[in-house]
């Protein structure tokens, strides 16, 4: 890994069209400004990893479970009961 030392308001450029600027440093937190073309996906790593993990889990939908689900949905409407669903 390339390691560079930068100060506040200094930047690094990656290729022609990506620029990362150190906006502020406070304690152990660093604020970064990222300027990149729209086609380049920029995400917090832990969020992208969480979504990726859910995608991988969803991809393995078991036919038996899906069959049980459609039976269940025949009886029960999603979100029914006047009470919203809760995060698991």
């Amino acid at each position: 890994m390339l390691v560079l030392t930068r100060q506040v308001n200094e930047s690094i450029v990656i290729g022609d069209d990506i620029e990362i600027t150190i906006v502020a440093i406070a304690g152990d937190k660093v604020r970064l400004g990222i300027s990149a073309p729209a086609r380049v996906a920029v995400h917090r790593k832990e969020i992208a990893q969480a979504i990726k993990a859910e995608n991988l889990k969803a991809a393995g939908a078991d036919s038996q479970h899906v069959g049980d689900l459609s039976k269940l949905m025949g009886k029960k409407q999603p979100g029914e009961g006047g009470k919203p669903g809760q995060p698991a």
Partner: peptide, 10 residues
Amino acid sequence: FVTRFRVFAD
């Protein structure tokens, strides 16, 4: 925006 939202209320 949670990754695991329970679809059916308890």
